[in-house]
C-alpha cells in the first residue's frame, strides 16, 4: 500500500538538472526584464564617471585611485542588485516552490546565487576594462584589476545572498541589508584593491590572488548553507 502512495511512477529529476533549471529560468526572467539587468550596470558606469568630474580629472590622481574607484563602484552596484535576488520570487511565490523542490536547498540556492552573479556581476567585470582605460590605468593593472573583479564579484554575490535571505521578510530590509553586508565586504575590497596596488608597485600578486581565491571558495561553499537556513526562517515568518 505505501509503495503505491509514494511518487515513483515517473522519472525523477537529478540535482544537476534541477540546478541547471534554476539558472536557466532566472537568466530567462532577467533577460525579459532588462531593467533589472541594466540598473546595476548603469549605476556602476555613473559612479565611475562621476569621480573624474567631481574630484579631479588629473591623470596621476585617476591612475592612483582608479582601481579603488572601480572596486567601490562594483561593490555598491552589487549591493544595489542584492535586494532583487530573492525579493521577486518571494513576492510571487516561486521561492516557496523552490524550497519545496525535493532537492537539497543548499544546491538550489547556490544555483540561484550563481545566476544572480551571471546577470549582475559578470557584466561589471566585462565593462570594467573600458572604464579602467577611461581612468588611465595601465595595461598590466587593468588585467590584474579584471582578474580580481572576476574572483571578487562572485564573493560579493554569495556573501550578499545571506543578507538578502535574512532581510527577506522585512518590509524595508534595504538599509539593514547594507548594514549587515558591508562589513563583510570590507576584506574583499581591501584585498581586491591591494592586489592591483601591489601589481602597480611591481610586487608579486600571487599571494593576494591566492587569498582572493580562498575567499571565493569559502563563500561559494559556506554562504549557500547560511542563505538556505535564512530562507527557511524568512518563509516561516511570512
Amino acid at each position: 500500500m505505501t509503495a503505491k502512495l509514494q511518487a515513483a511512477t515517473t522519472v525523477p529529476v537529478g540535482v544537476v538538472a534541477a540546478m541547471g533549471g534554476v539558472v536557466r529560468r532566472d537568466l530567462q526572467a532577467s533577460f525579459r526584464q532588462p531593467q533589472d539587468l541594466l540598473n546595476p550596470l548603469l549605476f556602476f558606469m555613473m559612479v565611475v564617471t562621476l569621480f573624474p568630474l567631481g574630484v579631479s580629472p588629473e591623470e596621476s590622481f585617476l591612475r592612483q585611485s582608479g582601481s579603488g574607484i572601480l572596486w567601490v563602484a562594483a561593490l555598491l552596484s552589487t549591493l544595489l542588485s542584492l535586494d532583487h535576488l530573492f525579493r521577486h520570487d518571494f513576492d510571487n511565490g516561486t521561492l516557496e516552490q523552490l524550497v519545496l523542490q525535493p532537492q537539497p536547498l543548499y544546491l538550489l540556492v547556490l544555483a540561484k546565487t550563481l545566476a544572480h552573479w551571471l546577470v549582475t556581476g559578470l557584466p561589471l567585470v566585462l565593462l570594467a576594462p573600458v572604464l579602467a582605460v577611461m581612468l588611465h590605468l595601465e595595461g598590466n593593472s587593468i588585467a590584474i584589476l579584471c582578474l580580481t573583479l572576476l574572483i571578487g564579484t562572485p564573493v560579493l554575490s554569495f556573501i550578499g545572498s545571506v543578507g538578502a535571505a535574512l532581510t527577506l521578510g522585512l518590509r524595508s530590509g534595504g538599509v539593514l541589508l547594507s548594514l549587515l553586508i558591508i562589513p563583510l565586504y570590507i576584506p574583499v575590497l581591501i584585498f581586491g584593491t591591494g592586489t592591483v596596488a601591489a601589481a602597480a608597485g611591481g610586487a608579486s600578486v600571487g599571494a593576494y590572488l591566492a587569498l582572493m581565491g580562498a575567499f571565493l571558495v569559502l563563500s561559494v561553499t559556506l554562504a549557500p548553507f547560511a542563505s538556505a537556513a535564512a530562507l527557511r526562517i524568512s518563509l516561516s515568518n511570512s
Partner: peptide, 8 residues
Amino acid sequence: ALMAGRHA
C-alpha cells in the same frame, strides 16, 4: 519551472 526538480 514548477515541475523542475520534481519529475521529468
